[in-house]
């Protein structure tokens, strides 16, 4: 089972994201820079596709988003973090093709494996993986992301 949605990439969102990771590389934010021109226009920071969450219809980590339907109950797991005891354990990207502002990406996510482990600090740990593909308007696969979330039995000790 795979869910998909559209993620239009605009320059302002790229700028906001780049600032939020303190990365104002001209290749990401200055269209007339030599760095951008060398890449056929602005490109995006390595973890930029995270901001596709704004367009994910059932995104669980924004409970205040105005919605036409009654808000879905907060869900956890399914890769990535979750409310409460969910934490993001791992994130992996493969880059196939650059993403440029103006692209309209189709984002398709499917669940991956699930497994359990006894944690050293957090009791029983339940891991779940999700695989997300970001494909541009020309049908070119740009990024494949693999996210692993973990549910812990209690708050992680520090």
């Amino acid at each position: 089972m795979a869910d998909s949605f559209e993620f239009p990439v605009d320059r302002t969102q790229v700028m906001l994201f780049a600032r939020s990771v303190l990365d104002i590389n001209p290749a990401f934010v200055e269209p007339d820079s030599p760095e951008a021109k060398a890449n056929g226009g602005l490109v995006t920071p390595p973890t930029f596709v995270q901001s596709s969450a704004h367009y994910q219809p059932d995104y669980p980590l924004d409970l205040t988003r105005p919605r036409k339907d009654a808000p879905a109950a907060a869900r956890s797991g399914g890769g990535g973090g979750g409310l409460g005891r969910g934490l993001h354990a791992e994130q992996h990207y493969e880059y196939h093709h650059p993403i440029h502002p103006g692209d309209v990406l189709t984002v398709t996510t499917k669940p991956g494996e699930r497994w359990e482990k006894e944690g050293r600090r957090g009791g029983k740990l339940m891991f779940s993986e999700s695989i997300t593909e970001y494909t541009n308007q020309d049908g070119v696969l740009c990024v494949t992301a693999r996210s692993i979330g973990v549910q812990t039995g209690r708050a992680v000790d520090q």
Binding site: L22, D23, N25, P46, T47, A89, Q91, Y95, P98
Partner: peptide, 20 residues
């Protein structure tokens, strides 16, 4: 990621993965 792209170039990465 900024350390990587500052060092290697804005579009140099083919893969990037981490554990938290």
């Amino acid at each position: 990621g900024r350390m990587l792209t500052d060092w290697l170039g804005a579009t140099a990465l083919k893969k990037y993965g981490v554990r938290f």
